[in-house]
Write a protein that binds this DNA or RNA. Structure first.
Lengths: 136, 136
DNA sequence: CAGGATCCGTAACGATACTG
DNA sequence: CAGTATCGTTACGGATCCTG
């Protein structure tokens, strides 16, 4: 499937032949899994299942709000399974669904690829900045 | 390489063993290529090279500012090649570097995967919403 | 413990006007 | 044509307080 095929078959609010499909559902889903916290949550849950506060500590720096919101979005999309045991105090386990494991691994692969290219990217940035300093 | 290995070897401003490496360079690079406009620009340039305004029309709905900013970020990272011919009126071609083609294809693969799962995700959402309507 | 509700600041984004 | 500069808005994210 080509890029052109891909983007021409779905209704676009703006124009008919545009890459930018506003409000496109796949774009929204992609945002959930590639968002700042989405990536980290998927990565953590790729290790094992976690409880809410446990996950919060594991990730570090994430607010309760964002953890809850991102988890809910991922759960609603079918990537995360929420297992709430009706005990007091509450005990809730979060884990990846098979579908979630699939995306998680792909996002994770991309993350690793990017990480491997960091030195290369830095060299490119140095070259870019140097060229800019000269010509200005 | 495991998730744990991956996130434990870089300096983290907050804590030492956290998934969240604030200001992490790979995270910034990942943002550039998975951002709303980054994804679309990479997709377009996967087809062929484009001139600035041409690219703007091809993507649709992107402002000049965002196109310029995103292109500059991708160029600086070494993913996009900018060929400015010194003529009047200016003629500038944007294309992918080999490195850019690599990320582009990966991001594109992820986008396609997500697109294929849209029906599945929608079913999951329906189930989620239905369960919420009852208990919620 | 697991979250929901609320308030608030910032930074990202869009629209517009202008320039080489 | 290919941008840069500026400004106004908005939506995202963080901090805090509260509840079952």
């Amino acid at each position: 499937m080509t890029v052109s095929d891909y983007f021409s078959n779905t209704a676009a609010p703006s124009s008919s032949d545009t890459l930018n499909r506003v409000g496109c559902p796949s774009r929204e889903i992609l945002d959930h899994v590639t968002s700042r916290w989405g990536v980290l949550i998927l990565a953590a849950l790729l290790e094992r299942s976690y409880r809410f506060s446990e996950l919060r500590r594991r990730i570090g720096g994430i607010s309760e709000k964002m953890l809850a919101e991102t988890l809910r979005a991922l759960e609603r999309d079918g990537f995360v399974h929420r297992d709430a045991q009706p005990v007091i105090p509450p005990h809730v386990d979060y884990s990846l669904t098979p579908l979630g494991r699939e995306v998680g691994e792909q996002v994770w692969a991309l993350t690793q690829w990017v990480e491997r290219q960091v030195p290369t990217v830095f060299k490119a940035r140095d070259a870019y900045d140097a060229a800019r300093a000269k010509t200005g």
